[in-house]
């Protein structure tokens, strides 16, 4: 169910490599945990981030969840459609619900992330 072309973090972010850049969002598991998303706090383009640093936050009616950057890099674009339609994350978490686009600092960091099968296993572990 989780796309093979994505990388996954333990904090339930996904990352898609596009050349020197990466697109980042939260996983289907994360959006289901949150429920209906009502607001996404987006960073300013140009913001430089370390891996695991907060890149923004996602809010449902009764909870707030920080979104962490899975790798180090600089924010080059944000999904501004989310300001009008935060529910895109609920509807299409791995596609139209992307959150930021980063210019990656060190591609090797991507190797620290999980592949789809690994992530699915990780999720199974969480459910127990």
């Amino acid at each position: 169910m989780y796309p093979d072309n994505l990388y996954y973090s333990k904090d339930h972010e996904w990352l898609r490599l596009e050349g020197e850049e990466a697109v980042v969002g939260i996983t289907d598991f994360a959006q289901k945990q949150l429920g209906d998303i009502i607001y996404v706090d987006l960073p300013q383009p140009g913001k430089v981030l370390e891996a695991h640093q907060t890149v923004g936050s996602v809010e449902s009616v009764k909870s707030v969840s920080d979104v962490y950057s899975p790798v180090s890099g600089e924010v080059v674009a944000v999904n501004s459609e989310l300001s009008q339609s935060p529910d895109l994350i609920n509807k299409d978490p791995h596609g139209q619900g992307w959150i930021v686009r980063l210019k990656i600092k060190d591609k090797a960091e991507v190797n620290n992330l999980m592949k789809a099968a690994e992530y699915e296993k990780y999720l199974e572990g969480l459910e127990h």
Binding site: I38, Y39, E59, S60, V61, K62, S63, V64
Partner: peptide, 12 residues
């Protein structure tokens, strides 16, 4: 808009 408030966002 309760996510602004202490019972959800706690110290933030």
């Amino acid at each position: 808009l309760s996510t602004r408030e202490q019972h959800i966002r706690r110290e933030k």
